[in-house]
Amino acid sequence: MKKINLACIIDDDSTHVYITKRFLDLTGVVESVLICHNGKDAFDKLKAIIVNGESLPELILLDLNMPVWDGWQFLDAFKTIPTKQKITIYILTSSNSEEDIERAKKYNMDSNYIVKPISLKELKNIVLDLA
C-alpha cells in the first residue's frame, strides 16, 4: 500500500492536535506528521521546507479559528508558495456556521469542509483516498 510521507496538522488546540495525530497514526499509512500551531507558523514551516529543497506535505488538515493567522489567512498566503506538488487541504474546524461554510465555497473548499470532531473512520477514508 502506498504511504503518505508527510501530513500536516495546523491547529492551536493541543487536544485536537493530539487526537488528529493519534488518528493519523492509527490509519497506518502516514509516515510522519508536521504540527503547526497557527497559519503563520505553518506558512513559515512550509517555506523552510521549500528552501531546504524537501517535499511539502501531501495532506494538510487546517483549523480555521486560530491566533496570529487564521485558516483563511493561511489559505491566502499558501497560494504564493511555488510548488508543482499535489497537496490536498482539508478544513477541519469546530465551526458549522453558515458564514464559514459560505466562505469555504469561495475557496472551492466546501467539499473538503469537515466539522470537528472527526472520527477515525472519516479520517481513514480521507487518508486511504490519497494513499
Binding site: I19, R22, N96, V115, K116, P117
Partner: peptide, 24 residues
Amino acid sequence: AHIVSHNLRSHSGGLSALLSILKE
C-alpha cells in the same frame, strides 16, 4: 451562540475523541 456552536463543540468533541482513543 458562536461560543456554543464553536468553542463548546470543540471542547466536547475533543473530550469524546479522547475517550474513543482511550477506549482503543
